[in-house]
């Protein structure tokens, strides 16, 4: 804010008695400007379809098949998806109750960060659930079978599937919305079911299927993991990450040395995320363990990996 050369008066120095020797060099203090405080959070106006372009990559056949799913969208997927929904409705009470219970009161509408950030109404938790609820109503409730328009029911169509693929993949399953719903309706449960249905008809998400497949492969290999596996810090390596994480009391290697398993790549490459990397480094340093620079240190052996590796 202030000119570099001008000494900045930190406070208007109220009483002469105030003993403040620390304020001697105010000009050297970092200047951090916090966003202005708002008394009332502003709810974004709807921007219809603002995130409709966010269309993730569909998994390749090999990645789907490695996990036992059909390679590509199967014939008659509509019926199969609806049947799968029926199966899940019988397996998860959460899904069953949540499909029925929502009263469209709207209390959750402004509680999802994906909505707050994008203004796309389909990112409102209730609208996200409704992508599935409308299909549920059509095939599994009497009013939806008789009067689809009246209750907002819709057939399972390509358009619906496309919306599912877009908007269920824009939910991080954080469950924030469930805190605020009067019935605790948890959109994450719905999102998980939708993803399971899409997987089952051969319409998986590229990075989910590929990396899960990779993790499954990794798990089958004896340790140490494949050479060179640590080159891509940003790639989620689920298999390995989990192995380290589950170590608990068992002696385990610090995962960073070899693979930087638990790290988003942003920790290495982006500002201000790199601050968290520095934070981890300080913790490791204080604990006497080699820090986050992968290759320069001798193999560290630590005996409780859980606290360190679950930091992500």
């Amino acid at each position: 804010m202030a000119d570099e050369t001008t000494p900045v008066a930190v406070a208007p120095a109220p009483t002469p008695a105030a003993p403040k020797p620390a304020a001697a060099k105010p000009a050297e203090k970092a200047k951090v400007v916090a966003p202005p405080y708002r008394d009332y959070p502003t709810i974004p106006a709807l921007k219809i379809d603002s995130m409709v372009e966010s269309n993730p990559y569909v998994a390749a056949a090999a990645h789907n098949e490695a996990l036992g799913f059909p390679g590509t969208l199967v014939d008659g997927w509509e019926q199969k998806a609806v049947a799968k929904m029926g199966e899940l409705l019988g397996k998860y009470r959460s899904l069953r109750v949540y499909m029925d219970a929502c009263v469209h009161c709207g209390a959750c509408t402004d509680k999802c960060h994906y909505f707050i950030g994008t203004g796309d109404p389909k990112n409102m938790p209730v609208a996200r659930q409704d992508l599935m609820r409308s299909v549920y109503r059509r095939y599994y409730t009497l009013p939806g079978k008789l009067f689809p328009k009246l209750v907002g029911a819709s057939d399972m169509t390509q358009d619906v599937l496309d919306d599912w693929f877009r908007y269920y993949n824009q939910c991080s399953e954080c469950r924030r919305c469930s805190v605020f719903c009067p019935y605790g309706i948890d959109t994450a449960e719905v999102t998980m079911a939708a993803k399971e249905i899409m997987d089952s008809v051969g319409h998986g998400h590229k990075y989910v299927e590929r990396d899960h497949g990779q993790g499954a492969q990794d798990r089958q290999q004896p340790r140490p993991a494949r050479p060179g596996a640590g080159k891509h810090a940003g790639r989620p390596r689920r298999g390995r990450a989990r192995r380290h994480r589950c170590g608990g009391q068992v002696p385990a290697r610090c995962p960073w040395r070899r693979s930087a398993a638990g790290h988003p790549s942003a920790d290495f490459f982006a500002e201000p995320h790199v601050d968290s990397l520095i934070g981890y480094g300080k913790v490791f340093h204080a604990a006497g363990i080699s820090g986050p620079c992968p290759r320069r240190h001798p193999k560290p052996e630590i005996s409780a990996c859980s606290s360190a590796t679950t930091s992500r």
Partner: peptide, 20 residues
């Protein structure tokens, strides 16, 4: 008549919500 096939099921539903 519409109670058991409509959103009025929130009344029994709330007691069965696993998150609660």
């Amino acid at each position: 008549i519409v109670f058991p096939v409509s959103k009025l099921l929130h009344a029994p539903g709330v007691f069965f919500s696993p998150t609660r």
